[in-house]
Amino acid sequence: MADQAIEVGHPPDAVLRVVNSVLRRVLPTPLGAPIGEFMLVGFTGRKTGKRYSTPVSAHRLDGDLYVVLEAPWKVNFRDGADATVSYRGKTSTMRGVLIAERSTVADVVQRLASSYGAKKAQRMMGLKFPGGRVPTSEEWGEAVDRLGIAAIKLTAKA
């Protein structure tokens, strides 16, 4: 819909396949150190037990590391789950917890987008802002519901 302030805006699937293939190889190595905008999140599927390794944008907020996504695999972190995270050339085991509560997600993504500015936020979040500006908290809340946007907070495993 043209009147929405936020839409999904991922690159074409063919581009994602190539970029993700390269990132899967590079991020866990020292060559991944300068690629701070991305991280590799490894996790086990709740139902399948299959191991997945997914390149995602790395978001820092208040010293914490987040994944922002609308992808269905977010449910693997619903009750918390261990994840292998390769970020800035280092790999560690972290605990990921899904944040799906509308107001909390809207606050996280609005603060991230504001810190990046509209142009970078669109690239980092895989979203489009047709108005060319950072959406308001209310617009983020609507998009959280409509697009299923959530966040996964990653913390050091104790």
Rank of each mutant, 00 (worst) to 15 (best):
M1N: 10
A2R: 10
D3L: 06
V8G: 07
G9T: 12
D13L: 12
V15S: 08
R17P: 07
V18L: 13
S21T: 15
V22D: 14
L23T: 02
R25I: 05
R25K: 14
L27H: 13
G32I: 01
G32P: 03
P34D: 02
G42C: 13
F43Q: 00
T44Q: 08
K47A: 12
P55K: 01
S57K: 05
H59M: 07
H59E: 09
H59A: 10
L61S: 00
D62Y: 03
L65C: 06
L69S: 14
E70F: 10
P72C: 05
K74M: 08
F77N: 00
R78Y: 08
D79I: 01
D79S: 14
G80W: 12
A81K: 07
A81T: 03
T84Q: 11
T84S: 13
G89H: 00
T91M: 00
M94C: 04
R95Q: 06
G96Q: 01
G96M: 06
T104H: 07
V108P: 00
S115W: 08
A118N: 14
K119V: 07
Q122C: 11
R123P: 01
M124Y: 15
M124V: 00
W140L: 07
E142C: 06
D145N: 07
L147K: 05
A150Y: 00
I152Q: 02
K153E: 11
K153C: 13
A158D: 04
